[in-house]
Amino acid sequence: MNATPSALLLTALRHASLVLFVTIIAVFGALAPKFLTADNAINVLIQSTPTGIVAVGMTFVLLTAGVDLSVGAIMFLSAAIAGKMLAAGQPLPLALGAMLATGLGFGAINAFFITRLRIAPFIVTLALLFVGRGLALTITQTRAMNLPDRFLQLGSARVAGVPLPLVVLGAVLLVAHVVLMRTPFGRQIYALGNHPANARKAGIRTQRILATVYLISGLCAALGGILSLAQLGAVSPKFGEAYEFKAIAAAVLGGTSLFGGRGAVFPGTLLGAVLIQSIESGLVILNADPYLYPVITAAVIFLAVLTDSTRHTLLARLNRRRIRQELPT
C-alpha cells in the first residue's frame, strides 16, 4: 500500500478548491442556517453567473499566459451603449446585439495590439480598461441610468423552469469546456500556454490563437455584462468595476495557472466563481461589515493559491528519483 500520510495530503490538496468550497459552505451554514436553504443556493448560483461567464473568457486568456484587464470596462461600456439605445427607444434585441458587438470590438482591439504590434497583454488591456471606462462615463455623463423593465424581465425569465441566467451560464460552460478539451483549437491553446516558441515551431498558428482568446474574453465580458445588468436594472458609474479581479480570482481559485497551460473551465472556473459569490452572500446574511468583504475574499484566494503551491512542492518531493532501495529500519 502506498497510502502514506503525504499521499493522502496530496489527494486533499489536489482537490483543494473543492475542499475549500465545502469548508466555506459548512462554515456559513453553521453560522447562519438560512445560508443552506435551496432558495439561497439558487440565489447564489444566479448571482454568480456574471462573474462565472466573465471568468470563463478570462480562463481562455490565462491559459495562454496572458491576462485581460479590460473585461470590467467592456461590461460598463457595453451596458452604457445599451442603456442609451433603449432610452432612445431602440428595440431590446438590437441593444443586446450592440452589447455583444462592443465586447467583440474591444476584444478585437486587444487582439490587434497584442498579436500585431506585439505589446504585452497586461499593458494593452490595462490601457483599454481606462479607455473603456472613460468612454462609458462620457456616454452616461457619469449619471446612473435606469433601464426599462423589459431588461429586468430577462433576469427573472425561465426556460423550461430553469432561470435564464443559469441556462446561459450552463450553455457557455458547455461550449467552452468542449472547445478546450475536445477541439484542436482548445488543445492548441494548452500547447501555446505550455511553450509559445515550441508551439510556433510545431506549426501552430499562435498569433491566430492569441487573437481568438481575446475575442472570446471580450464576448464573454459583454455577455456577463448583460446578465449583471439584468439583475441590477441600472447602469451606475461603478458598473463592472473590479470584475477583472473577480474573474481572475475565480479562474485561479479553480486551479488555472497564471503562467499558462494549466486549468479548466469545468469544474474549476465555475467552482471558483460560485465560491467567491458564496463568500459574499454568506457575509451579507451574517450582516458583516461590507468593508470586510474584500479582506475575507482575499484571504480565501490566498489560501487557495497557498495550497496550490504546497501541492507543487509536495509533488516535486514525492516524484524525486529514488536511487537505492532502503531496507526498512
Binding site: P184, Y190, H195, A199, A202
Partner: peptide, 24 residues
C-alpha cells in the same frame, strides 16, 4: 508539450475530426 498527452502531442496540428463536426 508536457501538459498534453502523447496522442495530443503527435497530432497537435493534424487532429482527426469526427465527420463534419468540430471536435476531435
Amino acid at each position: 508539450f508536457s501538459n498534453l498527452t502523447i496522442a495530443e502531442n503527435i497530432f497537435l496540428t493534424s487532429f482527426p475530426r469526427a465527420r463534419a463536426l468540430p471536435w476531435i
